[in-house]
């Protein structure tokens, strides 16, 4: 683990999960190798990396869906995982209401179920079929199910895939709210560099192995990160700092950082972002 990573983690808290020298190589094809990782209670850790860099594989190993081919994964007894997979495909042949979906996850009573639906912002949809939900509503329902397990660690794998830009921003805002309310750790993988970086305590840059890790500011300045994501990340960094400053000013009201608005008022961030866009295009 890099010194930066140690510096910002809660110093003495025991990790919820500790990954050491993890190798995953199904059929001899190496997907992950020598991955070290520790998630402590209360921190938000984001995995970034290009397609095929093993983000999903690492998260699946963390939740126990993949057996490592090498290394070890130590889970704290207090670890309780709430998992929101990349895409949960409920077979069309299965009728299931949102309420039943949540209840099968372990909702103990109707009140807890209603509360979870309210928390994720889909109160009133309990009687609806999962198949008829929109992409955003569906992911919220899966999140509600995860929350009902009273998780000590939320694991989100590209949970915003298929959502439009406002939907993505709203979803991550929700994650932050939930994290504050539940005090759980969050581990997520995402493509949405801008939003994700702004909300993370620690970023792990993955490409088969851990390229670098640290605070968003530190990581985005690292050469390994730039090699993977190019100069477009300068925009991310600017946005990150910007949103961060903004939240300091407002002092944690629920007004929540909304990237889009600020660009209109602040020329530098705007310029950075368009530079980033050009690079991506």
């Amino acid at each position: 683990m890099s010194p930066e990573g140690l510096a910002i983690a809660v110093p003495h808290a025991k990790p919820l999960i500790e990954v050491r020298g993890l190798t995953v190589a199904p059929g001899g094809k190496r997907i992950l190798w020598d991955v070290d990782l520790a998630i402590r209670p209360d921190e938000i850790v984001t995995l970034v990396g290009p397609n095929g860099s093993g983000k999903t594989t690492l998260l699946r190993a963390i939740v126990g869906a993949i057996r490592p081919d090498g290394g070890e994964i130590r889970r704290s007894p207090s670890l309780r995982i709430g998992y929101v997979p990349q895409r949960l495909a409920i077979d069309r042949t299965m009728p299931i209401t949102v309420d039943r979906f949540l209840a099968l996850g372990g909702a103990t009573d109707a009140a807890a179920l209603r509360e979870a639906l309210e928390r994720v912002g889909i109160a009133g949809l309990g009687g609806q079929q999962m198949a008829t939900l929109s992409g955003g509503q569906f992911q919220r329902a899966v999140l509600a199910r995860a929350l009902l397990r009273r998780p000590t660690m939320l694991v989100l794998d590209e949970a915003t895939q298929g959502l439009d830009q406002p939907g993505v921003a709203a979803f991550y805002r929700l994650i932050e709210e939930v994290r504050r309310a539940l005090g759980c750790a969050v581990v997520m993988a995402s493509h949405d560099l801008h939003v994700v970086m702004s909300a993370s305590d620690r970023v792990i840059c993955l490409n088969g192995h851990v390229c670098c890790e640290g605070t968003p500011t530190v990581v985005s300045a690292r050469p390994e990160y730039r090699a993977l994501f190019g100069l477009g990340t300068e925009g991310t960094l600017a946005l990150y700092r910007h949103v961060h400053d903004h939240r300091h000013d407002v002092g944690g009201t629920d007004g929540a950082p909304c990237g889009e608005d600020h660009h209109h008022h602040h020329a530098p961030a705007d310029a950075d972002r368009s530079a980033g866009k050009e690079h991506e295009a």
Binding site: R60, V63, G64, A65, I81, G82, Y83, P85, L88, A89, I90, M94, F101, L104, G105, G106, R149, V155
Partner: peptide, 18 residues
Amino acid sequence: WRGLMTATLSPDLAFAEG
């Protein structure tokens, strides 16, 4: 029932829920 249903919904979800 619950285990069977969860495994049917998504094996990964079942793993994550122990």
